[in-house]
Structure formats: C-alpha cells, structure tokens
C-alpha cells in the first residue's frame, strides 16, 4: 500500500510517504516540509489506495459468495445483473445531468440504486412458490442484466461525445476520484458485510453439499440464500457505485483462492478479501504508471493481467477434471 501511495505521476520517496501517513494517522512527528507533497500523498494517493483495496475486497467477496449461493462457478456481480443495474443508474445521471427527475442524485447514488434494483428484480424473478432455485436465479440475473444493458445502450445513443467518454470511463472502472469523504461509508459497508458473510462460512460450506444435504444439516437453505443475496447485492452496489463496473475480480479472485487453499468458506472469504484488495491496489498502481501521465481504466487491466495467470493455474490443477 505504501508503495502504491508513493508511485504515480509524481514519485514520492518511500520515507516521505511513511512520514506523511504516520503524521496524519498518529499525529506523531512534524508535518512534511513540502505542503504540495503532503497534499498529493494524503489527499489524493492515500484515499485512492484505500478505496482500491476496499473495492477489490468487496468485489471478490461478493463473487465468492454468489458462486456458492447459486452453485455456479461462473457467477459474479456481472452475471447476476448487479453491475448492469449500476451502470444504467450511472449512465442515466451522466447523460441527463441536471435533468429534472434525477436532480440531486449523484452518479454514485444512482449506481447504487441501480445495483440494488437489479438485485431486487433478480430476487423476485428467481423464486417460485417462495423457493429460490439456483439455476432460476442465474437465468433471472442474466435476463435482467440484458434488459439493463439494452436500456443503457439506448441511453448512450442519446448522449453527446463528451458524455460518452465519461460513460466509457465509468464503465471500465476507476478509483481516481477517491476522496476521504466517501471512505467511511464504503469502509463500514465492506467490513461489516464481509465479517457477516464470513460468520455464515460454516453454512456456506453446508450449501456446497447440495440443497437437500444442507437442509438435513439443519440449514434453512431458502432463508440463507435470501440473506446472502441481499448482503452480496448491498456490498456490490456500494463498491460499484464508487469505482464503476470492474470485471474479473469478482469472478477470478475467489477461484484463485479456492485453487490454492481450498473451498472452506471460513478461510476462503477472508483470504479472498485480502487477495482482492492487494490485486486491485496493484492494478490501480499499474493503471496510473504504465502510460504516465494518462490513466488506463482498471477494467481493462484487471482481466488483461489476471487472466493469463489464472489460466496457468487452471492448467496446473488436476482437481477440476
């Protein structure tokens, strides 16, 4: 993280970074002699790195939980339609701007509402006679995603080129807009939901044995599914709202952890959060250094860098045959 803070359009020596962060966090030592450097480190870089970590953790944990909830290794916030819901919300606000209906609603708030709306729709369509069936949930998620995607495409056609650029950048994801004001909410949501989801670890493991077996193990499968879906939608909605729709992390990071340390959720979820955080901090670091001083959107890099490694791991692992 410290390295992530130090490198950027302007490189700051590691010592200075330590000094500045330590000063702000603990009040120890003197303020840095160069106010500009202090400004860069504390007001731009630090919140950005913290946000990248939170977003990475949130997306990865959400993906891990969704994969188990719908018993489908391909599940992630995108497949279940959450991301497309958020995108539509964001794109509406970007293109309509101060449009009367949406006045007062920021891009983040709209994206959050979009993700939660998509989650609610999938939830409603995924059940029959009060039972949430895994396959039905996945199919409902994919269908809802397509509807939101069509609506988004239509709205984009009405947009001006400048707005389109903003939309494009948002859709590919970025944490460049990070500021201290947004961090408390995101931190609380990510930490709280991740902790809560980890507490469900034992029951998530039971779900791996299949619905009937889990029921025989005393798990109220339907209620568990409902609770987990709500938590995952909340978590995804929050992180997508502040960082845009970033792919790959939610799908691949959980599998990476499973392939290396196994599928026990009590270990899987914390490790997934950690790896997701580290991964997105690294990707963000590359996104602002590879093509200085321009930034490459995160969504482009997450898959481009992660996929080859993932494929290598997949080939090496025999347990999947």
């Amino acid at each position: 993280m410290i390295v992530g803070i130090s490198i950027g359009a302007v490189n700051v020596p590691l010592d200075d970074v330590w000094g500045i962060v330590l000063h702000h966090v603990t009040g120890a030592g003197a303020a840095h002699s160069d106010p500009a450097l202090d400004q860069i480190v504390w007001n731009f870089r630090t919140p950005r790195v913290v946000l990248a970590a939170l977003v990475g953790a949130g997306l990865a944990v959400s993906g891990a939980v969704l994969q188990t909830v719908v018993s489908n290794p391909l599940a992630d916030p995108i497949v279940l339609g959450f991301s497309y819901g958020a995108t539509l919300g964001a794109v509406l606000v970007i293109t309509l701007g101060g449009g009367a209906a949406l006045a007062g609603l920021g891009v983040s708030a709209a994206a959050f509402l979009g993700a939660v709306a998509a989650g609610a729709l999938v939830f409603a369509l995924g059940q029959r006679r009060g039972r949430l069936a895994p396959t039905r949930l996945v199919l409902a998620g994919v269908a809802v995603g397509y509807v939101f995607l069509s609506a988004t495409s239509y709205v984009q056609l009405q947009a001006t080129p400048t707005e389109l650029r903003t939309v494009m950048f948002w859709m590919l994801g970025s944490v460049s807009g990070a500021h201290w004001g947004q961090l408390p909410t995101v931190t609380v949501v990510v930490l709280a939901t991740t902790t809560l989801l980890s507490l469900f670890g034992r029951r998530l493991n039971a779900l791996l044995a299949g619905d009937e077996s889990a029921t025989a193990l005393g798990v109220d499968v339907n209620r568990l599914r409902a609770v987990l879906l709500v938590l995952a939608a909340l978590l995804t909605g929050t992180v997508i709202a502040v960082a845009g729709s970033i792919g790959f992390v939610g799908l691949m990071i959980p599998h990476l952890v499973r392939l290396t340390t196994g599928a026990d959720h009590r270990r899987l979820l914390p490790l997934t959060a950690l790896l997701g955080a580290v991964y997105l901090v690294l990707v963000d670091l590359l996104s602002r250094t590879l093509n200085r001083p321009n930034e490459i959107p995160l969504g482009i890099l997450t898959a481009l860098l992660g996929a080859p490694f993932f494929l290598w791991l997949l080939r090496r692992n025999k347990g999947l045959d």
Binding site: L208, A209, G210, D211, E212, S213, L259, G262, G319
Partner: peptide, 11 residues
C-alpha cells in the same frame, strides 16, 4: 442422500 446439486470441489 443422493444429492445431485452439490459441488464439493475443493473441500
């Protein structure tokens, strides 16, 4: 049980 729905890979 004969549970077809499960996926215990990795446990």
């Amino acid at each position: 049980l004969q549970d077809a729905g499960g996926n215990t890979t990795g446990l």
